[in-house]
């Protein structure tokens, strides 16, 4: 097809499912995983507590929990539930799994410094408030978009951690969240599920917050204190 033909397509022409099908994904995954799904938001709630510790091990645990959350929403929500109705979601799902594995493998690159209080509060606000956006679209408590299962909440919260990493790792970790933000915003717009646009908007807001409250690790005073000493070199 030539360029003029491509330009004749609208955003809606690329969405091959209806809003009901998409919104029911949240309810279906929650009902299917009940009650084990509660583990994910619980992990999300304690993550900042680990992330705020001075010792490196809890901060590694925070990154590991974030990695598990990415694997969870990548494989379960995107590959298993969303993929069958929207094939690009399958690709995103596997990319989420790879990103989650990358976070798990970043042994020596835990959070370079403890999370600040503003970052921790932003995190808690994200995982406690954003889940209700899907309920606003589909008035059913089962439709809560939970951290670790729903990509919108998971991505929005975890950019707070990724922005803490030194470059170029920071941008490597932020590439997929930004791609997902663009893709999901276009999808929600085309579906007319405007409340869900809160997810990509929140992701961008939290990214700005992360850069403002978490200056580059090199400029963070306490980042010096967590650099591995001569006797504790990372592998």
């Amino acid at each position: 097809m030539n360029g003029a033909t491509w330009l004749s397509y609208s955003l809606q022409d690329f969405v091959m499912f209806g809003p009901e099908v998409f919104l029911r994904l949240f309810a279906r995954i929650n009902q299917d995983l009940w009650p084990w799904l509660l583990l994910w938001p619980l992990a999300g709630l304690v993550l900042p507590w680990f992330g705020r510790q001075a010792a490196e091990l809890p901060r590694r645990l925070a990154m590991a929990l974030a990695g598990l959350a990415w694997i969870g929403c990548g494989y379960l929500f995107l590959v298993r539930y969303y993929g069958p109705v929207n094939w690009p979601a399958t690709g995103f799902g596997w990319a989420f799994v790879v990103q989650g594995l990358l976070l798990l493998l970043l042994k020596g690159r835990a959070l370079p410094a403890p999370m600040t209080w503003p970052a921790a509060v932003s995190w808690w606000l994200a995982i406690l408030l954003l889940p209700w956006l899907s309920v606003l679209e589909m008035p059913d408590l089962w439709a809560l978009a939970l951290f670790g299962l729903a990509p919108g909440v998971t991505v929005a919260a975890t950019v707070l951690l990724f922005a803490r990493q030194p470059s170029p790792l920071r941008w490597l970790l932020l590439a997929l969240p930004l791609a997902w933000t663009l893709f999901s915003a276009a999808t929600y717009w085309a579906l007319g599920t405007f409340w869900l646009l809160g997810f990509p908007v929140a992701t961008l807001v939290l990214l700005v917050v992360a850069f403002r409250v978490n200056p580059s690790p090199a400029q963070t005073p306490d980042s010096q204190s967590v650099r591995p000493g001569p006797g504790r070199q990372s592998p």
Binding site: M16, F17, V21, Y81, P84
Partner: peptide, 11 residues
């Protein structure tokens, strides 16, 4: 669009 409902048994 209309029949693309994935594995949603209700739909």
């Amino acid at each position: 669009i209309t029949f693309n409902v994935g594995g949603d048994q209700y739909l």
